[in-house]
């Protein structure tokens, strides 16, 4: 058991973890952060994606101790980011969700993608989002939602 320090959605948390504990389980079970989901537990579906120091990682494949001293952001933590909020609004407007279980992962991933490159080419965008699975098949709507939100990230850049 060791104590690690995580800044989760803006709040610094000290939490005691075992070396073999996964970031996903610590976030959900110990810190009650259920805005990160999981569906395959082996890095295939992308639903457990969080931003770790700004980089998307799959939290079911990440040891909690690896994240010591780092910042974790999940979808709910993005609500306070004005651009991300517009991105979320675009998801809502385009009906880019059905059951919604994958939606936080798509929000987190597409926020990262647009922050990095708001002029992203359509085919490249599909590739960037290919690591998250939506079984309801809302890919068309998500694509439109993300494309539509590019403008907010461009503004920020200028």
């Amino acid at each position: 058991m060791r104590t690690i320090s995580l800044k989760v959605n803006g709040i610094v948390k000290e939490v005691a973890v075992e070396d073999n504990e996964l970031l996903l389980n610590v976030l959900r079970e110990k810190l009650g952060v259920t805005s990160v989901k999981a569906a395959c537990w082996r890095g295939e579906c992308g639903l457990c994606t969080v931003l770790l120091d700004g980089i998307p990682v799959k939290s079911c494949m990440t040891l909690a101790v690896e994240a010591d001293g780092k910042e974790v952001i999940t979808a709910e933590g993005l609500y306070s980011d004005e651009r991300a909020k517009k991105l979320m609004e675009s998801f809502v407007k385009h009906g880019a969700m059905q059951c919604g279980f994958c939606t936080p992962a798509f929000v987190v991933t597409s926020h990262y993608v647009l922050s990095k490159n708001p002029d992203i080419d359509g085919e490249e965008l599909k590739k960037e989002l290919n690591g998250v699975i939506c079984r309801c098949g809302t890919y068309y709507q998500i694509y439109e939602a993300v494309k539509d939100a590019e403008k907010y990230y461009k503004k920020e850049k200028v």
Partner: peptide, 15 residues
């Protein structure tokens, strides 16, 4: 490719 488990066996982590 088959993972019925959610947790990892015990180990000591070094960095």
């Amino acid at each position: 490719f088959t993972t019925p488990y959610f947790t990892l066996p015990k180990f000591v982590y070094f960095k």
